[in-house]
Design a protein around this nucleic acid. Sequence first.
RNA 1: GCAGGGUUAGUGAAGCGGUCAAACACAACAGACUGUAAAUCUGUCGGCUUUAGCCUUCGUAGGUUCGAAUCCUACACCCUGCA
Length: 304
Amino acid sequence: MINTTNSHPTLTSKLEPTTLLAIVGPTASGKSALAIALAKKYRGEIICADSRTIYKGLDIGTAKPSLLEQEGIPHYGLDLVEPYESYSAADFQAHANEKIAEIRERGNLPIIVGGSGLYIDGVLYSYEFGGQADEILRTELEALSIVELQERIEEVGYEMPENSQNKRYLIRAIEQGGVNRSRQPLMSGAVIIGINPGLEALEDRIRRRSKNMVDGGVLEEARLIDEDYGWDSPGASGNIYRVLRPYIEGSTYDLEKCLEDALTLDKKLAKRQLSWFMRNDDIHWFDNSSEVLAFLSSQLANKI
RNA sequence: GCAGGGUUAGUGAAGCGGUCAAACACAACAGACUGUAAAUCUGUCGGCUUUAGCCUUCGUAGGUUCGAAUCCUACACCCUGCA
């Protein structure tokens, strides 16, 4: 298992004064609770960088912090769109930047928390996202094969995406004329905290969380998707909803089995998230919240 | 007890004499990722070595054949029909 807690780098002068805290990590790692603890301690306000909690009405299945759980700390990034609406990393970036400015204006510390790597990086590394999605062009290109799309890219002389077998990326390359590499250095004053309790602990937490979701009423949310929004809605792609679909539609009555599937999907998600974050050397990794609190109070207390 | 069907790699499931270490799916493992990102995609996936190759696998034990996961015999376990 990864153990980087003994070797996290000492903060350099370039990181002070800290003007933004980011908390990243896999799903169910305890980011939200940690964020609240830190917000209380350092006069913070929280921006959730989570591609699921942006949806209104999908609260339980997305593990969106409830009003009660928010403990009076202002939260942003939640309930931004309806489940059937589409939302992009660029949209999030705009929203987050706006909130960061507002929070600083109030003299508070912006704390950005989440597991959506692209959302986080878009903000922290000032991506200049390419043009907006062209739905008409996309549906047109969707009909072409991978090879045809590749040929098309070569013909026009665009750069081929590294994932040259990924249709979605090929279409995007054609749409925006190549590959986007607009990454800036880490936003000045930002400190990124990574929290990774390990896969075994994560599995445990995910199990418990799924159970709580059922007790909390995810089935109602899933029914809402089934009856109102439709399973094609962007909001319906959350793990728990996907596995609940056969149960809601009546093709299985085995709820336990659905929860097993949820665990599988969540574990895979956690690994993907980890593989995104692990390559980022700017992240200071920890196993659990108390280590983070200790680290920050010893290294940063005076500088925030 | 008689008749018929089945037993394949972690799971499900193709294969029914050679081109089979064995399709495919799932799981697992590794990785990519710049306006769908809880999305999407890539690689590996019996063992050893690694362009190639060698070894051990297709319920168990024998047999037929130049050659068997594939055919035959016996045994074990599972399912179905008749008793």
